[in-house]
Design a protein around this nucleic acid. Structure first.
Lengths: 202, 202
DNA sequence: ACCTGAACACCGTTCAAGT
DNA sequence: ACCTGAACACCGTTCAAGT
């Protein structure tokens, strides 16, 4: 109840989180190469190997960054898509690509590979996936998406959003800048085609 | 004409290419972290800094690996898709994802970012893109793809193929393994939906 | 329980020197 | 023109030692 007891435990947590925040800031600023344990320690005001008291190694620290980021993105994007009565699949996908374009380095880190089997991260990913699945099924019920396997349809949507964002970030999408489109445009195109396909096979 | 004159110039080229081959082999074996100039030199039978006589720095060597790989993939995939009378867009995309799944590390390197403005690499990419565009337009003429902007349609196809391959490699596609699909299945799904959409709006 | 400073092995890059 | 060996600055990780 006293202020001292309130501070002891959170202190360790804040130190740990300040290390994660420092790593994320360095990642945003200069890419993965800029994230060195020495710089992380300096930014957090500790020695270059203090992180080892909170994380097994550098990859564990990066996994924590990815976990925090996936959690934040889910909160924002899922929150936006749940604004109306039923979850909006298109809003989920456009929110996803917008987040990817806004935080390119975190996006690449988070989805670059399955980080160490982090149960917390897996839980967040699973919840987000469930929401997308519900949105897909709702859209199918309204005839806006074809009546196919919803999991597979969700995979199609995710793959396009992910690929459009990734190619845009690496410059492969707007090669000539001529007939090219933004990732959000491609997401819109796909939903329109799927709506037409659903209308054709009712 | 003599054997000695025949050897001098190609020698330098073979040395350069043996360095590229060594780097590619190390990349395949252990990912980007395994590609160190010291290991590259050892595998090529030279000192750890001999590569600097052929490449400006490590990134230039990696760019050469990416350039060689893009050229090889284009040759194989484009060749397969040109087997019949008109280029086959679906064959191009399935060939693309098959190559990505077969050489994951090279795929990530080649498409991870636009490498240093390599004119050779840009030319290969441009030629490959032109072939895809021709295939898309041929399919549109046959009513198999919607009559939209062909460049934008090509972007949609590429984004899906790229995203499906990338997510499969990082394990994000078959999360539960339940209703998940292989990247080639998603490519097939997309072409089927596009065919239905084209049939709906003739 | 958490942190520090020294130390080790490794890496990319540079440089003087060789042929 | 191409290569070598030594050297430099940097990094991830370990460890003995402190509180």
């Amino acid at each position: 109840m006293s202020t001292s007891t309130r501070k002891t435990k959170p202190m360790a947590e804040s130190r740990r989180e300040s290390l994660i925040a420092a790593a994320a800031a360095l990642l945003d600023g200069g890419g993965p190469a800029a994230v060195t344990l020495r710089e992380v320690g300096r930014a957090a005001g500790v020695s270059h190997n203090a992180p080892y008291k909170h994380f097994a190694d550098k990859e564990a620290l990066l996994a924590a960054v990815a976990s925090r980021e996936l959690d934040r993105m889910s909160r924002v994007v899922d929150g936006e898509a749940q604004g109306s009565a039923r979850p909006d699949a298109k809003a989920l996908m456009t929110g996803y690509v917008a987040w990817a374009l806004r935080y390119p380095e975190r996006f690449k880190l988070t989805f670059g590979r399955w980080m160490r089997d982090d149960p917390e991260l897996a839980a967040t990913a699973s919840a987000s996936r469930s929401l997308l699945l519900a949105a897909v099924q709702a859209a199918q019920a309204h005839g806006e998406l074809p009546a196919a396997n919803p999991e597979r349809l969700a995979g199609l949507l995710l793959a396009l959003a992910h690929g459009a964002a990734d190619m845009a970030l690496s410059g492969h999408l707007s090669a000539d800048g001529k007939g090219s489109a933004e990732p959000a445009d491609l997401v819109g195109d796909l939903f329109e085609y799927l709506r037409l396909a659903a209308a054709n096979r009712p």
